[in-house]
Design a protein around this nucleic acid. Structure first.
Lengths: 202, 202
DNA sequence: CGGAACTTTGAGTTTCCTCAAAAAATGTGG
DNA sequence: CCACATTTTTTGAGGAAACTCAAAGTTCCG
């Protein structure tokens, strides 16, 4: 599944299962991943509200989406105050996550960025109760995805993750990583873990 | 004027005049500016919707704000579908700008970041019709602000801007800069200028 | 006029990048 | 289950972008 930037997609989606990510490209191919979309997330609000999408979306695993008609958004606001409030809640929340990423990419070192991202994945995973075991996160990404999320090169990302692995802060096997030393990770990220917010169910 | 992170501000604001910026700090003082707030922008949606603000705000000039009660937001959704739609529109728009910044900070070189930011300022300034002369932007920021917006050090920012000035791409005097070669700037930024969106007036 | 804030420049260092290639894992068809 | 192609991870080496420290100019402002 793939939506391309610039297309005026007529739809809004809610992720029911699976996950994917939003990203932007520069003309020469450099890619920046903006955020990840997990179940419960809303996709396409920008495209619904603005003229066209300014980003692209790609799936990491099979996704099941609930589709809304774009024109329906306006009707939703007229007739379902509660739901439209939730839409706005989700928008505010994803803005918060973007804020965090921007802080990370702008001001944290490579190892701090990795620590913060892994912690973010862990938090979201727990929030969704996707987690089988605690501190284990199952997500189908490659190191290239991590590099493009953190604004680092693939090679440097690999070396930095390697450092975390060698120091027994995390473990990384196949499509899953495990946090061995959460305190150390939080210390590196330099941020208090975010209080879990009650998420509305759309 | 200053709002501190973590405080549970009971208010929502619309900027009527003046401008400011949102930012986050790391424990050791590193600062990342998230975005700038110009007239018409909405401040505090996150704080209204989530438990507390995760960022701080600082004014660059005297600001006149229109204050809403936080509890009023829910009532607004119930009674004024049109206005609540606009609130969401503004949220989607600021998310778009955050996306752009994230791309910039993550994947552009120092000179590309500067070019992109200057262009962004110019676009917003024109959109607001604050601009006296075309290609002139009046904004009360220091190079430290630019550095903290772009995730660069002050020294490197200074050298990079110096390069743009020496090459007659821009001019910089006091609280105002002028774009001398807009094409070159756009070329460096590597992005088509965004189509102007019709902004709702709150 | 003097102090504070901001800009500019120099010098040396570090982080992160690119290029290149090997090793390991994954997937595919026979 | 194996041979082969592809993708992903890992390692080495050298280079460039950006950083830090330090200090000198400038401008701003009371």
């Amino acid at each position: 599944m793939l939506f391309l930037e610039g297309t005026s997609s007529a739809h809004l989606y809610t992720v029911l299962s699976g996950c994917g990510f939003r990203y932007k490209l520069l003309p020469d191919g450099r890619r920046q991943i903006l955020n990840y979309c997990f179940p419960g997330d809303f996709i396409g609000l920008q495209g619904s509200v603005m003229q066209e999408m300014q980003h692209s979306i790609e799936a990491l695993s099979d996704m099941v989406l609930c589709v809304f008609q774009r024109e329906g958004l306006w009707r939703l606001f007229e007739t379902h105050a509660g739901l439209s409030f939730d839409v706005t809640w989700l928008a505010a929340r994803s803005e918060q996550i973007l804020d965090q990423q921007l802080l990370s990419v702008g001001r944290r070192s490579a190892i701090e960025r990795c620590a913060h991202l892994l912690l973010l994945f862990a938090c979201r995973s727990e929030e969704l109760e996707l987690a089988g075991a605690p501190n284990k996160v199952r997500i189908a990404i490659t190191q290239q995805h991590i590099a493009d999320t953190l604004g680092l090169s693939l090679v440097h990302t690999n070396r930095t993750l390697g450092r975390l692995i060698r120091n027994r802060v995390i473990r990384w096997k196949e499509q899953e990583f495990e946090i061995l030393n959460r305190n150390r990770l939080a210390e590196l990220a330099g941020e208090v873990e975010t209080a879990k917010a009650v998420r509305p169910l759309l």
